[in-house]
Amino acid sequence: MRQPWKPSPAIKASAVLHLGALSGVAAGLGWPWAVGGILANHAVLTIAGLWPRSTLLGSNMRKLSAPACDAQHIAITIDDGPDPQITPQVLDILDAAGAQATFFCIGKAVEAHPQLAREIIRRGHHIENHSYAHRHYFSVMGLDQLRKEISRAQSVISQTTGHTPVYFRAPAGLRSPLLDPVLQSLNLQLVSWTRRGFDTVATDSGKVLQRLEKGLATGDILLLHDGNAGMTASGRALVLEVLPKLLDTLRARGFRAVSLRIAADPLNSLKGVAE
């Protein structure tokens, strides 16, 4: 059931500011002040959109819930796939460690590799929405464009895997104030991360691992990539170098790697993941 959009306090304040500025101009109080206020407001909203972990533009899941923290859960999220060369190896690494992950998949890639998408689900993981085409101009799309882009991915993933996404991650984490009403209308929760390894641009797996492990704490949401993956100097995808060591660290520190859906209900089990 679709829920009515509930704007964030910052969006409400922005609307009030715009109305106040227009009223001020109409009352002859001086348009330079009104324009200055509106420009400053737009600058704040723009900065918020460029800050992936910001909550100014709407609900944004940046850390797991308190019950998940109590259960020593950490969520590993893997973006931009599925990739036919890398994703099967990622699945094998996760299997070997008895870990679950959340794959934020691009709808177009799911369309191109439906069997691989279904294999992700079969292995006990979850696939969530990462837009249909991961367009570089996603954050400046209009309302209708955003709705079509996200809805198309939602449809492709649901029809291919039999599971409807409940989480969404914006391409590169960038967004505009228009994203929140679209996500609310589709019953999707925006998810960012606690820490990332920058494994799409790095070449040193040690530095990527260090970024992910530094300050690692229960409830963290970690970001890696199986699509658009950065490569080591030897030509191996960074995620394949980093993930086994990261999982060893989690195990040594008493953490359990679970999917976002499992973390949302720590008493749940993987029974029903493949149902």
Rank of each mutant, 00 (worst) to 15 (best):
P171E: 11
T218M: 00
S23W: 06
G58F: 08
V140H: 11
A263F: 00
F255E: 02
I11T: 04
G20S: 12
G219A: 06
S158Q: 12
P266F: 01
R122F: 02
K63V: 09
P266H: 07
L209W: 03
A10Y: 05
I221W: 06
L39Y: 02
Q3F: 08
T87R: 07
G227C: 09
R123K: 13
A202V: 00
L216V: 11
R169E: 07
L94E: 05
T161R: 05
W31D: 00
G173M: 01
V239K: 12
R118F: 00
I157Y: 05
R53G: 10
I93V: 15
G49D: 03
S139R: 12
A217D: 14
I78S: 02
R195A: 15
I78E: 02
Q154L: 11
L188T: 02
V208T: 07
L45F: 01
L94C: 10
Q115D: 12
Q89T: 03
T200E: 12
A172M: 12
H134E: 00
G197F: 13
V239G: 10
P114I: 07
S176D: 04
H125D: 00
R147M: 13
V201T: 14
L216N: 12
L223G: 07
R53P: 02
Q100V: 01
S131M: 07
L212T: 08
S131C: 11
Q115K: 13
G142I: 08
D70C: 00
E241H: 04
L94K: 14
D180R: 06
A34T: 04
P32R: 15
A117F: 08
Q189D: 06
L29G: 04
R195C: 10
W31M: 04
G254H: 12
D92M: 10
D199C: 13
L143K: 15
T200R: 14
H163K: 15
V90K: 03
A40C: 08
L224P: 01
L183M: 04
G98A: 13
L224E: 06
K6M: 11
R169V: 04
P67L: 05
L19W: 09
L146F: 07
T218S: 14
R211L: 01
K214Y: 05
T46V: 00
S192C: 04
L29F: 09
G197M: 12
L17I: 09
K271L: 12
G24Q: 03
L39G: 01
N129P: 05
H136K: 13
T102M: 02
V182T: 05
L270C: 09
L183P: 02
E213I: 08
D248C: 07
F255M: 08
R147Q: 15
L22Q: 06
L246E: 05
D248W: 00
G36N: 05
G235P: 04
T161P: 03
Q184R: 14
T77M: 03
R135T: 04
A48E: 01
G28K: 07
A15K: 10
I106S: 11
T164H: 11
L174I: 10
A101Q: 05
R175W: 03
Q100C: 09
L57T: 02
L188A: 09
Q3N: 10
D265S: 14
L183C: 06
P4L: 08
E119F: 00
A21I: 02
S151Q: 15
V166I: 14
L250N: 12
